[in-house]
Amino acid sequence: MTILGIETSCDETSAAVIRDGKICSNVISSQYVHRKYGGVVPELASRAHQRLITQVVEEALQNGSCGIRDLDAVAATYGPGLVGALLVGLNFGKALAYGLGIPFVGVNHMEGHLYSVLLGEPAPEFPFVSLIVSGGHTLLVHVRGPFLHDVLGQTRDDAAGEAFDKVAKMLGLGYPGGPRIDALAAQGNPRAIRFPRSYLEQDTLDFSFSGIKTAVLYYVRDHGLPGDPSVLADVCASFQQSVVDVLVRKTLRAAMMTGVRDVAIAGGVSANAGLRHELGKACTAAGKRLFMPHIEFCMDNGAMIGYVGWLKRNRGIRSPLDLTAVAGLELA
């Protein structure tokens, strides 16, 4: 079975061909136009998706040595995300499926992150705990089996990636902030400044990253913008350490509470070297196995959507063609 997966929920236009659960191609067109605006600019995002979608899909088919008539189904993200951006991929996918007379499958973007870790080799075994961490989301999920998952905790204010981006902006580092902080943090002392860690109530797996963001704001207010590169590196390292400490501790607690052996991470922030390193160490110490996607599959991508589309088609699931984009779609 051959599936085309389309993803346009935020700033990546992406398409992929999945054949029998394996990736044949995955084309991601990062919209660098955003960089100079210091964030994802939605107007540009929708327009760029419209401009890029046909070309990205054609390239995915070509790279996957797949003729358009070879497709058995089309899958596209229908939420969560920016409505204007979602509509581009969703309507393109529905129209293509209708035109070809094949099933259409709407996919929850978060399920894409959650299940695409199964594409890796080796892959985690059910049940496992997954930390999905990106600019828009931070959540811990207990995955008991295909489409059997429970959200254990999520952020009550800022997503971890949002804290990275806002702190990067405060420090004048530009966009995207996460990779720049990660790179600078590698050269700094994570113990130079003691920024707070927020663990909330004792037994919760929810997160809060607003306080650490504000703590960096006060640091900059009181000490000025770090002019010395080594001080800047120390601020980045100390900030990153406080975020990573919270993510690692809560993820391990979730693994202990659920009794799983396997732990996975996904989402844009899972590309963070500091997080990968610390979570790896903690999992090893606790006798857990950690599964991290290749960097290409940490960011938003069509392959994860195609893969979930494939899982759903295997269960005979198809979506109605009047499926609409749902900006605030939850992981049910």
Partner: peptide, 15 residues
Amino acid sequence: VGHFGSPTFTLINEY
């Protein structure tokens, strides 16, 4: 009903 987190990335949340 919902999680009233920051919509900085999502831009508009609906509860």
